[in-house]
Design a protein around this nucleic acid. Structure first.
Length: 262
DNA sequence: AGTACCACCTGACGGC
DNA sequence: TGCCGTCAGGTGGTAC
């Protein structure tokens, strides 16, 4: 489920481990994990380079190099990066492994193969081409409101759309709506300007909280819905039985009392 | 521009 | 025991 807070944690891991070392070799263990790039291209373009910095937009992580290529990582729902010594065995489900000259390697692990590895010349161009909107942590209130005002349909659908605002997935989207007291199926047109403003501030607060806790579900505040995404759980605020429904074909949890439909 | 639905993909789980 | 359907979820494609 890597959503914005998870990818932010991945970024910090990569920043703390995999920068500034020379790439000796790249191995691709499953071509299905590749986007528009190829195994040969990855190997040829990354060899001899060093990762110099990373940046994150939404659920995408970019690793810039000292040359022109940028390594793009998207994690699907089961992906993560893992840095370790060559002496350790490679993690199961490694799809791409970057071997460095210091005896360490960075593995892109992706069990369910829903993520993608790609190569770009610049992150901004890649994001534009993919139609990815502004980052949910960086977007201003004004822009958030105006982007949402351009949309119709259920508010959850709008928030989940990475072109509108990037970073919320199914789970954090439910959390934001819960903390804001908004029913997931509320039509966007039924949301007032002030409710949109509240959604913006709640979204940032929820994401900031999750990032500070390193996206560790067990460390989230007791008032959060995320640990209670199960049948029979009760609302952490009012005790009402949590309901489950489908929105966008996705399992959606909400409190029928705290989140009344407008 | 919406929504619905399918597909991708693997592993866990419940039912029989 | 083991087979089968279902679910999980990010994304992308198609049809309406």
């Amino acid at each position: 489920m890597p959503e914005l807070p998870d990818v932010e944690a991945f970024k910090r891991t990569v920043d703390a481990t995999a920068l500034h070392q020379r790439v000796e070799r790249v191995s691709v263990t499953d071509d299905r994990a590749l986007g528009k790039t190829s195994r040969k291209s990855l190997q040829r373009k990354l060899k001899g380079r060093r990762f110099t910095s990373t940046c994150r937009r939404g659920k995408y992580l970019f690793l810039a190099t000292d040359g022109s290529p940028v390594l793009v990582l998207h994690f699907g729902m089961t992906g993560y990066p893992e840095y370790g010594s060559e002496e350790e065995s490679e993690p199961q489900h490694s799809r791409l492994v970057v071997h460095f000259d210091n005896g360490y390697r960075l593995a892109y692990v992706c069990q369910r193969m829903l993520g993608r590895v790609d190569l770009a010349t610049d992150a901004e161009g890649f994001l534009t081409e993919m139609g990815i909107g502004p980052d949910a942590m960086g977007i201003s209130r004004e822009e958030f409101i105006s982007r949402l005002e351009g949309r119709r349909g259920a508010v959850k659908s709008a928030l989940m759309n990475q072109g509108t605002v990037a970073g919320l997935g199914n789970i954090y989207c439910d959390e934001v709506l819960f903390q804001a007291g908004v029913h997931p199926k509320t039509q966007r047109r039924d949301l007032s300007h002030s409710t949109l403003a509240r959604l913006h501030s709640v979204m940032r607060r929820v994401l900031r909280t999750a990032i500070r806790r390193n996206s560790d579900v067990d460390r989230l505040p007791a008032s959060y819905l995320i640990p209670r995404r199960e049948a029979g759980e009760s609302c952490p605020k009012c005790g009402t039985r949590i309901r489950r429904m489908k929105v966008n074909q996705r399992g959606t949890y909400y409190c029928p009392r705290c989140q009344r439909k407008k």
